[in-house]
Design a protein around this nucleic acid. Structure first.
Lengths: 344, 344
DNA sequence: ATTCTTCGGGAAAACGCTTGCCCGGTGTCC
DNA sequence: GGACACCGGGCAAGCGTTTTCCCGAAGAAT
């Protein structure tokens, strides 16, 4: 009986391969795990055969300790079940796969303290880079995170954030302000004059930017923002904020802007549950263009954000040693759909 | 100027901490990285202070090589942007976080060869366990994967699959057959007699089970399955399969069963785009109860699958050294909603 | 024929950590 | 007061790799 893969209780080591092939450790290493040095063809074959026979796979941890650098990218998201982050993650994963990197994922649950803890824990992996997709907040409570990030950068790790960067943090940004402004303007063009905004907590950068942009665009088209409600980024937040709004009273023909599609979709449900009809009666617009935005009825007017592509870019930005940054934030396109029918 | 975190270009090592604290490497290790042995309080303090001062975080790779075991769980999904896998991943991530484990994620893109390659690559990380959430197919083309899995198990890694396990593979299963059967029966109870099934490729276990169960339940309620179309698991598959069906001609009052909500939602769109009305005219039912199923109109009749919980269980199953397996597949509940109005 | 290069295999020293073992100092028991 | 546990710090041998040297052989140049 030959010494097959299944017969051993723990993984074959490079040592095993070298012995099996009758060569030195050094030679085996050079053959199997990419080295600049040449190895004679006869040796190469022997080693490769031995490796195949033993089912050898390099121990990445050992490789990382020896090389002093890992093949890991860490990805931090607020909530992986949220389609926004799901698509982002898909882009990151694709890029990582192309580059032969492994991605480890951590969930912040939108909690700054937790986020700091996670960055610290991830630091232990000595990843090549860290992609921060969790919603960045203004500095106040983000200090812990900031400190961990600096520590990470100081030990030679690259950090890229989706959204504003700063300091050692590279940034892949979309033009939230411009996109929201265009949306606001387009809506006044459709005849809307009164708006309600459903946003996240003050200080959450993405939300703040979208609110500011929308307000700007809507005002410039002679509209007025009746009020801005603050909650969070989830469907439930959208639902409860909208319910609150409806209780205060919402005139027919008002447009409700949710700072993300998920929020807007929650609002849609709330409107329906209050016995009103989204679209004709109360118009709704979102932001992100997640796939679901096309599947709800009425389908959702929104601003397209190329999420998957963004994730991919973030990955590129993090692995490129001399990344200079994108010139400007990515411009975004408005998509008018049925949830905002023209008011004549 | 003190020797602060930011002043070094690479991470502080345990050696640095030990020197800074004036103790041996062994003592520093025992204080910082959990050991059964006690260390005098005075020493402990010195070490902890030094570690804090230097911003020390243990190098997980080195730890893994030294200990011979990592703190990693590998998760294999077909497509992380799909809400099904997103929720699953959320559950896995939660469990891993609780257990102090890191999860690395890989995307199979529903390609068996790719899946085999990924398992092999992940093996290099020597993870404690592997969670296989990518759709399992019958053995024919899965041989490569099977072999890699065996190799993984042989070197001491635990594997759990969502769906059927077998061999060294632990399994966390839901009762797809029973759930689908109950759905089929419930629909005949609502007065439906003619069904069309939109499924994935033959051989994809989950799809096959759901089709079999549904057919069984529907027939037993005196219904008939007009035809079963095969495609894939995505929204686009649902859309194109439904379009194909509509071209063949679909009588009013027919029920369309999509093997997943995503497929069903694609069908919904196709029906609408063909100028027909989902629900009253052509009824639709799905499977999984993803959040979106409640947001589409008409909201989708489906079978609830506790995805997040399932992910969590999978994680538990993979880390528990003496896991005995759940007695039976988890029973599933049918949710009748507006997409299948009663006919009578 | 002699000296220089070049080539490529192997020995061994890292990498950053854990852990088995030794050993000196206390406290306990008879 | 002596024999005997304990206790707990430190030394050093690992863990599975990579990579720097060293060195002998073979070919090139003189």
């Amino acid at each position: 009986m030959t010494d097959t893969v299944a017969s051993q209780r723990s993984a074959a080591t490079l040592h095993d391969v070298a012995r099996e092939a009758g060569v030195s450790l050094a030679t085996a290493s050079r053959v199997l795990n990419g080295s600049a040095r040449k190895v004679a063809e006869s040796y190469r074959e022997r080693v490769e055969e031995a490796a195949a026979r033993l089912g050898y796979t390099a121990n990445l941890s050992a490789q990382a300790t020896a090389r002093g650098t890992s093949a890991i990218i860490a990805l931090l998201v607020a909530d992986i079940a949220d389609p926004y982050f799901g698509q982002l993650a898909a882009g990151v994963a694709r890029g990582a796969d192309e580059a032969g990197l492994v991605v480890t994922i951590a969930i912040t649950e939108r909690d700054a303290e937790r986020e700091a803890r996670l960055v610290r824990a991830l630091r232990g992996q000595r990843p090549q880079g860290l992609i921060l997709a969790a919603s960045r907040t203004e500095d106040e409570d983000g200090d812990g995170v900031r400190a961990e990030l600096d520590a990470f950068a100081a030990m030679g790790g690259r950090v890229v954030a989706l959204g504003p960067g700063g300091g050692d943090v590279r940034s892949v940004a979309v033009d939230n302000i411009g996109g929201a402004r265009a949306l606001g303007a387009a809506l006044t063009g459709l005849g809307y004059r009164d708006a309600i905004i459903l946003g996240a907590r003050r200080g959450v950068r993405t939300s703040d930017d979208r609110i500011a942009g929308f307000t700007d665009g809507f005002l410039s088209g002679d509209g007025q923002v009746l009020h801005t409600l603050r909650g969070g980024f989830t469907r439930e937040d959208g639902y409860s904020l909208m319910t609150e709004s409806l209780e205060r009273g919402v005139e027919p023909g008002t447009i409700v802007f949710g700072v993300s599609d998920v929020v807007a979709i929650g609002a849609l449900s709330a409107i329906r549950d209050a016995g009103r009809e989204p679209g004709p009666d109360v118009a709704v617009a979102g932001f992100d263009d997640i796939p679901t935005s096309r599947d709800v009825r009425p389908d959702l007017t929104t601003v397209h954000v190329p999420l998957e592509d963004l994730g991919y870019r973030a990955l590129r930005a993090v692995i490129d040693p001399d990344w200079t940054g994108d010139a400007a934030p990515l411009p975004l396109d408005v998509l008018i759909r049925d949830s905002t029918p023209p008011r004549a």
